[in-house]
């Protein structure tokens, strides 16, 4: 664990930074649940807009847990009735959480990114050609396809060399998510902090969102630039007790190694970890014991996660990987 902490600190120190004014970086979250997808999307978006006050978010990450594409489109429509659809990105999830509570089925969690001190570039890799291919039968083709899609994503993003953090959302699931990431890292290198997740892979639910529209067999990337520091860690767990403990310990360890003024915590988490929880709220409550209840917290349950892997062969290595069964924590700090 000490090794991981030291490595995270090294990564943090490695990020070039200039201290920014407090109002230059704005990360806000909102969430809502309900059977009416459109109303739920609208409710969450209204809450997010209010949290931003007079300012406008530059991008909104939308992660929802509605069941079919019709409901997902309705949810996006509800969000877009309040916020411009051009700034809506994200995908299908298994639920999520903010400081205000956990979201299970039929809900949406939003992360609004804004402020003068932050830049956002977005890219879409559509029709990747990976749908239906298996690691067992099609490894070579799958590798080439997802590598190519990852490269395509990264090449679309201007200012990659100035990037502070990439958010990657893909319809390429663990363990295929590593193949997509390999492509991204061929262009972006392995030092750029990356987090994100693979969308829900239940049949008929594997959708990513780009500028308010739904896409399947696709991936999106958001590149954030600005004067802030990023620290990351990943924790793997496969039992109820371990999920809760790694959520508490991982977030505590990361916050301890982060610079003094953290302003947001992201937790791209595994749907399988969620499935092990006897009580859904236990994981959020464990994180709150470490990060408190004030810091903006965006959590979403995915089908594969991007961030530093917590496996026997890579303890302490903060190079972003594509894995499953992880919670990938990212702390953004001034």
């Amino acid at each position: 664990m000490k090794t991981m902490r030291v490595a995270a600190m090294v990564l943090a120190l490695g990020c070039a930074s200039v201290w920014a004014a407090d109002d230059a970086l704005v990360f806000k979250t909102a969430a809502a649940s309900g059977e009416n997808a459109a109303e739920t999307g609208k409710k969450a978006a209204t809450e997010l807009k209010a949290a931003f006050g007079g300012a406008a978010p530059k991008a909104v990450l939308v992660m929802d847990s509605f069941e079919d594409v019709a409901a997902k489109k309705a949810m996006l429509g509800g969000v877009a009735s309040v916020l411009p659809k051009e700034i809506l990105f994200g995908g299908a999830s298994y639920g999520g959480f903010t400081q205000r509570g956990s979201v299970n089925d039929d809900g949406v969690v939003l992360l609004g990114i804004g402020g003068d001190g932050i830049g956002v570039e977005a890219a879409l890799a559509e029709k990747m050609g990976a749908a239906g291919l298996t690691m067992e039968k099609d490894l070579e083709k799958l590798t080439a396809t997802l590598n190519r899609a990852g490269e395509q994503l990264a090449k679309q993003l201007p200012g990659l060399d100035r990037g502070a953090l990439m958010l990657l959302i893909s319809d390429a699931h663990s363990p295929k998510n590593q193949l997509l990431l390999d492509g991204v890292q061929k262009v972006a290198g392995k030092k750029l902090p990356i987090t994100g997740g693979s969308v829900n892979k239940n049949a008929g639910q594997n959708w990513v969102y780009f500028r308010g529209a739904v896409h399947t067999d696709s991936a999106i990337a958001l590149l954030l630039t600005g004067s802030f520091k990023v620290t990351q860690t990943g924790r793997q767990a496969k039992t109820n007790e371990a999920v809760i403990e790694t959520a508490r310990e991982g977030s505590a360890s990361l916050l301890k190694s982060a610079p003094v003024k953290p302003f947001a915590v992201l937790a791209f988490n595994c749907g399988g970890r969620k499935g092990k929880l006897k009580r859904l709220e236990d994981e959020l409550e464990a994180i709150q014991t470490s990060v408190g209840k004030e810091l903006p917290l965006f959590g979403t349950y995915c089908a594969g996660e991007y961030g530093p892997a917590d496996i026997s062969e890579s303890k302490g290595d903060c190079t972003p990987c594509g894995r499953g069964w992880h919670v990938m924590f990212t702390v953004l700090a001034r």
């Binding site: 298994y94 749908a131 239906g132 298996t134 699931h173 829900n200 892979k201 239940n202 049949a203 594997n206 749907g271 499935g275 089908a303």
Partner: peptide, 8 residues
């Protein structure tokens, strides 16, 4: 037994 998401 266990519930899972998809074989793909």
């Amino acid at each position: 037994f266990g519930f899972s998401s998809s074989i793909h």
